[in-house]
């Protein structure tokens, strides 16, 4: 599904990612863990096409296609979804209108007809229930005045509506209470499918006890210093990241 090869990226002239290599197959869930500032969000944003980051080396293929030749919206239409660590508030744009516009753009790209208002509403209502989002929230401006937890659930809700092929979830678990965490985990698990893949960025093992990853990678100072199975997450929880510091290849 996704192949990251020796990715170097910098922001304002300083390199943050120093050669990341990662391969995610269809149907898999990969977790990327790492301390603050290690470059996790940078990786996520580079994959989504943020223009503030400059890719200086390496390549990324999405189902064999060069990702960097695509604009952020083209990537989204091709099936990439980024769940933001800090979802952006957009006053004046209603959540529903936004989501409908987005969905129809993506459907158009996939050669599907636009959903009419009725079908859209029915579909959206069902998915709102899945992540326990109140209908009143859906009619407010995008993320405006949402609590931290509501914002995160809204990201998962959008993912469920837009049905991407690859979901990159940047710390969707942080700042959630235990109930909200379970809701988010349920959302992710129901999204999981043979023809989809998920890249979970997280600090905590907590989420991984609800979502079982196929692979766990440790990102340290812009490099993946260790990869392993789900038990690696437990080890990290116990020992922290210090013991890996010498591992940078």
């Amino acid at each position: 599904m996704l192949e990251i090869k020796n990715l170097h990226a910098s922001v304002d002239g300083s390199e943050i990612l120093h050669g990341v290599t990662l391969k995610i197959n269809r149907g898999e869930i990969h977790a990327v863990m790492g301390p603050n500032g290690s470059g996790k969000s940078t990786l996520a944003k580079v994959l989504a096409g943020h223009q503030g980051y400059e890719v200086t080396k390496g390549e990324v293929l999405l189902q064999g296609r060069d990702l960097f030749s695509l604009s952020p919206e083209e990537r989204a239409r091709e099936g990439i979804f980024l769940g933001f660590q800090y979802p952006v508030e957009i006053p004046g744009v209603s959540n529903m209108y936004f989501l409908k516009t987005a969905l129809n753009e993506i459907r158009k790209h996939r050669g599907l007809e636009e959903l009419d208002a009725m079908d859209f509403l029915a579909m959206v209502k069902e998915k709102m229930k899945m992540v326990n989002i109140d209908e009143s929230l859906a009619n407010r401006s995008v993320n405006e005045g949402f609590s931290g937890g509501e914002k995160k659930r809204n990201e998962i809700f959008q993912m469920l509506v837009l049905e991407p092929k690859l979901a990159i979830l940047d710390e969707t678990d942080s700042g959630l209470d235990i109930d909200a965490l379970k809701i988010v985990a349920n959302g992710v698990n129901s999204f999981r499918r043979e023809d989809r893949a998920i890249l979970l960025v997280t600090h905590y093992q907590r989420l991984l006890s609800y979502i079982t990853p196929d692979r766990v990678h440790v990102l340290l100072d812009g490099r993946i210093v260790k990869s392993g199975g789900k038990e690696l997450a437990l080890e990290l929880e116990e020992k922290g990241y210090g013991w890996l510091e010498g591992n940078a290849a």
């Binding site: 503030g52 952006v88 957009i90 936004f98 989501l99 516009t101 837009l162």
Partner: peptide
């Protein structure tokens, strides 16, 4: 225009 808001919208498939 808020660049981050623009990026957010674009990551959802909405053109520039």
């Amino acid at each position: 225009l808020d660049e981050e808001a623009l990026f957010y919208l674009r990551t959802r498939g909405i053109g520039d």
